[in-house]
């Protein structure tokens, strides 16, 4: 059950998106987030949707697999939707019942916020689906490495991320096992009051924590045995070289940014929330 999450998982395929330099992909994603927040109305999502669809198709990641990355977010989506639906009071009132008031503005905002969230998740998961975690961390390390002069721990940060990514599935598996073991001992995890449920988590969290410390200890020894001594004097398996594709990607991102800025200037009605 816990293993079914796609978020942050790599999907192996040969595509032009997969081949992009991770540094470019990281920068593109940063730009993409800015672009998503530039969209101030539902209309503005149209060019964005075109871009995301094209990117997904190019990446050769199956749509169904992409959509799965949204699954863990479904409750957040529902929550955001309802929150905006009932708390926004603008436009005409359609329905009024007790303290609940449904307005056209509310409906619009609810859709707007939910779609924005979907775009954010789709775009960022495209990055993790098409980039191996190791390339990703390599990319981060290299982007931040100029900051080493001000003692910014770029290598250490990247190493921490790698190890975290490496151990997420292992720890999920372990959590699953511990949970089953405690259920077998009569633990009731999914019933009772909030207080009871929190208390019921203790027999799961403590063994998980103890287990993580044990793993950390053993991993540290294994790393030391393999001559790990920090980033100094370390070479890299991967040499990063920018290619034509990276140039094109950068151009596309800048064009998209330009479109999103210029479009509402030319057609002001596009930027207006009803």
């Amino acid at each position: 059950m816990l293993k079914d999450i796609t978020l942050g998982q790599y999907y192996p395929a040969e595509s032009c998106i997969h081949r992009l330099d991770p540094r470019i992909k990281l920068l593109a994603m940063t730009l993409y987030i800015v672009i998503v927040f530039l969209a101030q109305s539902l209309y503005m999502f149209i060019p964005l949707a075109a871009f995301v669809t094209a990117a997904i198709l190019l990446s050769k990641v199956p749509i169904s697999y992409m959509l799965k990355s949204l699954k863990p977010l479904k409750w957040i989506l529902v929550f955001m939707f309802l929150l905006n639906l009932f708390l926004t009071k603008s436009g005409t009132e359609i329905l009024s019942f007790w303290i609940i008031k449904l307005t056209t503005g509310g409906i619009y905002k609810a859709f707007f916020i939910s779609i924005r969230l979907v775009f954010l998740v789709l775009g960022t998961s495209l990055l993790t689906l098409t980039t191996t975690p190791i390339l990703l961390t390599d990319g981060i390390e290299r982007i931040f490495s100029p900051l080493k002069v001000i003692k910014f721990p770029a290598h250490e940060l990247a190493m921490i991320m790698t190890i975290a990514l490496r151990f997420v599935p292992t720890l999920l598996e372990e959590a699953d096992k511990i949970m089953k073991a405690q259920i077998s001992r009569g633990a009731q995890i999914d019933t009772g009051s909030v207080f009871k449920r929190v208390k019921a988590m203790i027999p799961i969290l403590i063994p998980l924590l103890v287990g993580s410390f044990r793993r950390a200890d053993e991993l540290a020894m294994a790393m030391e045995s393999r001559c790990y001594h920090g980033g100094e004097g370390r070479t890299k398996m991967r040499v990063m070289k920018l290619t034509l594709g990276d140039g094109i990607c950068t151009l596309i991102m800048i064009s998209l940014l330009a479109i999103m800025i210029i479009l509402p200037q030319i057609f002001p009605m596009l930027a207006i929330m009803p």
Binding site: R166, T170, E218, L219, M223, R226, H229, R234
Partner: peptide
């Protein structure tokens, strides 16, 4: 489980030589 550092098999083999 506790001696594999990275998330791809070949990358992990390269960890030592990198160091």
């Amino acid at each position: 489980d506790n001696q594999i550092v990275t998330t791809v098999v070949e990358e992990d083999v390269g960890f030592g030589p990198e160091n």
